[in-house]
Design a protein around this nucleic acid. Structure first.
Lengths: 200, 200
DNA sequence: TTGACGGGCATACCCAGGGTATGTAAGTTC
DNA sequence: GAACTTACATACCCTGGGTATGCCCGTCAA
């Protein structure tokens, strides 16, 4: 009834199934939200059964955590590349905020990372993962700017966190707009204004 | 088995039951979160059965919405009082942020409003309610400051929203601290710094 | 006062869905 | 190639959201 995934070695089979589950989960969680997505639906979309899902993940929340982590890895990776291409620490910050806001145009990203993430994983759970990815890049950017003497003194970690909160809210905000692409410019302007507060 | 609520008139009975349900729901949602709280547990804590809960509320999400709205009313009320007592528009903003952060020290408030709210009601649902309460007060404060010529030009609504996002994140942040009362000062300082960005 | 009506609530039930126990085929190791 | 492990499928349990129904008691008209 279920088409078996062809693979010679076991690790190949395992990896392939895990990948398919993650892909399906990201699609369904992103489209319908955590609550409205059942494990069985994910498994079915991945071409396997619940048993397979529970073999690779401890439960629904664990599967979600994996999807969430992947999203974090992706955005952090993008941001790091943007920062590397920026001429200076300040440009890295401003361009990074714009890149993050653009990323928020993806409804799946918003749903998984901004809406369901905190409720499912708890704030500490989300923060732990974010600290290793998005927040790490942002903090590094803030610290680099501070080292360059561009920022006023203060609690840099708290500062990065507050800015991050503002950005997430901005991401949700522009998604609601009739013309998100145009709203992005306005929100990015306001965000840049806020960042300007931190300049020495 | 279930103690009946003594009340002569029907509206009295109805109001009393609704109030008890809301109180119990706020306690349980706040302590255990939306998902881990069952309707039956809420009803039981209120001294009634599921039937009563479903008589007064359309479902679990509707009950949660009522709790969420009450929280919004409470905080907006407090903020409005603080603003009224402030000598000028700028003091109202800075003192308001501090009051909001203090409010975030309540775990139930954080859980209901900041963590579960968006996931259960959706961002639009949350925003709709917030626009009528907390965000209304904040926007009014920002607009008052703008009218007084204290702020640089820009999209004031987007600005208020971004600041709000930063504050919510700050509220979660200081709750994690070993000494929240002391962390509050630091976060409030950073928030004030961000607000400073908006001064003309 | 009384009888019909409706609101307030309890009880009993349905069923979707998260989680578990167990069976089985295929890969792995000695 | 036999013992063992891994990667699943199948069958099942049970919590919990939601609904259908019936009873009790205010309410209101005659």
């Amino acid at each position: 009834m279920i088409r078996r995934i062809p693979a010679r070695t076991q690790t190949e089979r395992s990896d392939a199934t895990t990948a398919r589950l993650l892909t399906a989960a990201r699609r369904l969680f992103g489209a319908d939200g955590y609550h409205a997505t059942s494990i069985e639906a994910v498994a079915s979309a991945a071409g396997v059964t619940k048993g397979a899902a529970y073999h690779h993940f401890r439960g629904k929340a664990d599967l979600f955590r994996a999807v969430f982590t992947r999203e974090q890895e992706a955005i952090a990776d993008t941001l790091e590349r943007v920062a590397a291409q920026s001429p200076d620490a300040w440009a890295a910050l401003t361009q990074g905020t714009r890149t993050f806001l653009e990323h928020c145009l993806d409804p799946g990203f918003r749903r998984v990372v901004l809406l369901d993430g905190p409720a499912v994983l708890g704030w500490d759970g989300v923060r732990e993962i974010e600290c290793a990815h998005t927040l790490r890049v942002l903090s590094a950017g803030v610290r680099a700017a501070a080292d360059a003497g561009l920022l006023v003194a203060g609690d840099l970690d708290a500062r990065a966190q507050l800015v991050f909160g503002a950005l997430c809210e901005g991401g949700m905000l522009l998604a609601r707009a009739d013309d998100p692409a145009r709203a992005l410019v306005g929100v990015a302007d306001e965000a840049r204004l806020l960042l300007g507060a931190l300049r020495a």
